[in-house]
Each structure stands twice: as C-alpha cells, then as structure tokens.
Design a protein around this nucleic acid. Structure first.
Lengths: 218, 218
DNA sequence: AGATGTGAATGAGTTCACAGCT
DNA sequence: AGCTGTGAACTCATTCACATCT
C-alpha cells in the first residue's frame, strides 16, 4: 500500500466506512455484484461521490458491469486497516468507560478492548464485562504488553489533558477523546474528538426553527 | 430570532459550541474581555474563522477592543437555544442507554433525560440513575407528557429503523442516532449520527502510515 | 449498451487583507 | 493604534458529463 494517508480527507474516509457497511449488508443478503447507481439508490448515497472516493485509491470496478462485492469489501477492509486486530485501552472507567468495555459491537470486529484503567482506588479491581479494572499507573506496561495502539479517553474534562499526555508517553498512537475538552494534542498521535454535547447543541439550534432539515454526513 | 437555520452549516454550528466552551472557561477564570486573536491563540482556533462564524448571526464585538465575555456567552447560548430546557428520552436501555442516563455532564446543563425506555421486559422496571426504565409502548404518552423533543436512539442496529419511526410518530423532533445504521430519516426530524466504529476506522486508517497527522475539527 | 473512472464545472468552506469603527 | 466585520482570493469538496472500457 502506498498512499500518503495524511492527504486523505476524513470526510472521504468516513464515507468509506459507510460504504463498507452498506456493502456488507448487501453481501449478507447474498448479492454478489452491484453498480454505483444501485448502491446509491439503496442507501441514499451519491453514485458519483462513491466512485470519486474510491478513485483516490485505485480502480475497483469493472466498466459496463459494476463492482464485485466480495472483492470490493476485502479491498476496502485492507485499505482501512481492518484486516489487522486493533487492541485498545480505555482510560477512565466511569459510566462511559464501562459502557465502552461492554459495547457488544466490538464482538466479532477487529477492534478489541484489552484493558480498562482508572486512577480511583474505589474503581480499580472492579470486574467490568470480562475485564478487571487496572490501576492507571500501569498504563505503560499494559500498552506495551498488549500492543495497544488505540486509546479511548473517557475521563472527566479537568484531567483529560494530563491523562492524554500519559497515554502518548505510554506509546498510544491514536486517541478517541470523549472528554468535552480541546486537547493540546501531540503531533504524532492521531487524535479525534467525540463530543456528545456538541451534537446536542446542534440539535438544539435546529429545534428553534420548526422547518424541515437534514444534516447528513457521517 | 430569525435566521434560516437550515442555511447554517453544521460545521459552523459545532464551532460555535466549541467557542462557547472556550469562552466559559475564560469567564470562569475571571476574564471579562478578549480579542479574537487572543482567543485563537489560547485554544488553537482561527481568529478569522471565529469572526466569520459570528458574522453570520450579527455583530458581537467592539472594534478596536474585542468581545465582552458575558455578553458574547449569553448571546451564543440564546443563539444555540441553550437558554431553554431540553427534555430528552433515551430509547434502548442497554449499556449505552444506561451510560447516557448516568452521564454526569448533563447535570447543570439545559439538557435533561426525562425517561429511558426499552422493549425488553427484563430491563423495564430497572432503576438506572434516578430513572425507572419504562416500557417502549408508552413512548408516545411519555414524550407528550414530558414535552420531550430530543430522542437518543441507543438500540441494536437491526431494530433502529423501526424504533426511529416510532419516535417520529410519538412527536420527537430531533434524534441523535447511536446505532451503526443509515436511517431512512423523516424530513421534518433533525437526525444526526454518532458512530463509534466509523471514528475507530478512521483512526485505523491513519495508524497504517506512521507519519504525524492531525484531523482537527469538532 | 451500460457502468466505470475522471477532467471540468460548480459549490462550500476557509483564509487573506483591509476598510471602518472605537 | 487596535480589533472587528467583510469582500475578495483561495482551497477543498461535490456534482456533472463524458470518454473509456467490457
């Protein structure tokens, strides 16, 4: 593989995930081949955008025919790095951290939570799902031993920055930040925010005008 | 208020939420006035973009001086509809639904979960946080009585569409969908997806090339 | 004929740079 | 002098329309 991954837009990338999901659904229905037009019709996507998105990474279809589902799915999975297992650690085992550990969507996926950590001695040692909460001090060893590269940051806002820095120091290479904070983030660690309140505030804004509206995207 | 809210980009809107958060932080530090340049410097924002974003809604600053924090915060809150209480219902009280109900970030905010519902009789009746899980059949009455306009959809993927339609029928006006599904959504209901796996797959992609990278945005 | 892959055209979003106010 | 508010320039993203291949 050899694409300057820094040059691919997150928008494109997130759509690839959506495409993949749609394709798998069709595959599970026994379908083996589809055109961009039919795919778009089925899932309200843009056929042109589907083709343009793929075009960044090579040729995937057969002119005059369409796309072979098995082939396309496999190539998209490789493209997104879903052909290898990703070990993740959860930092902060409050309500959110626990929900993440128990999240059934990870079963049968290539994403796996290998440890949940917390600083609070009252939480350390608890059994959550199949994991025992580990003390935060052991972050470095755990990350190293488990080969974890992804960290899910689920601590309270005031301590998020400090926890983040510990994660970076421990060798974590990508972070999903659930804390409602603008992290001062390390340049070599891919850091993405998932912020519930920002989404709610967007809904709140649109609730003010009682006209129809659709965001779409993601 | 009178802006065609349909014409405001979610990008702008989400940044307004970020600005608001940053401004509150400064306010809590006793600061009363700030320039766009200083704000940008403090929180790695773009000063020009900050001004442009605000410009869509009127004039907020004083030329030669900057912005009055109290005034700006208050106006942004009104703008986003954060001056009124938002009642929310959670549909699907599995792990995620429970975490949402217990989420401490709602305390002291204008967002409040007034009910959690589930179809599973084994879950109905459970006490989660300060709520007792209600049977899904009562959705309509609960929405009506509580004046809930926002719904948090936290059911398994296969039943998400059907649950969504029930929510729309019950009078919900805006939905945050946590299920990994492309909903066929109703035109008059503002529907937004929050998708953990899509975010992880984005991280996965970038983990493949070990160069530095930053997404930024939201 | 039919669907892909792609340059060209359009549209959206961001940054620049400065006029205008305090 | 300093900072806002904003048209103009630019960059990024999406859509169109067609040449190209099966």
């Amino acid at each position: 593989m050899s694409f300057a991954s820094g040059s691919v837009s997150p928008l494109t990338l997130n759509r690839l995930s959506v495409y993949l999901r749609c394709l798998r659904r069709l595959q599970s229905q026994g379908i083996e081949r589809i055109s961009s037009k039919d795919l778009a019709g089925e899932f309200r996507l843009s056929a042109a955008q589907f083709r343009k998105d793929l075009a960044q990474f090579g040729e995937f279809g057969i002119r005059g025919i369409g796309y072979d589902l098995n082939d396309l799915i496999e190539r998209l999975e490789r493209l997104l790095g879903l052909d290898i297992a990703h070990h993740m650690v959860v930092v902060g085992m409050g309500n959110l951290g626990r929900a993440l550990v128990r999240y059934p969507g990870f079963n049968g996926s290539n994403f796996q939570i290998v440890a949940g950590l917390d600083v609070d001695p009252a939480i350390v040692g608890l059994e959550i799902g199949s994991l025992k909460v580990q003390p935060f001090e052991q972050l470095h060893q755990i990350v190293e031993r488990a080969g974890a590269r992804i960290g899910l940051l689920a601590v309270p806002a005031p301590v998020a920055q400090s926890a983040y820095e510990n994660m970076v120091a421990a060798g974590i290479r990508a972070v999903l930040n659930f804390a409602p904070v603008r992290l001062h983030h390390h340049a070599t660690v891919y850091t993405k925010n998932v912020d519930l309140k920002i989404n709610l505030e967007e809904l709140s804004f649109f609730l003010q005008s009682p006209d129809q509206s659709q965001p779409e995207a993601l």
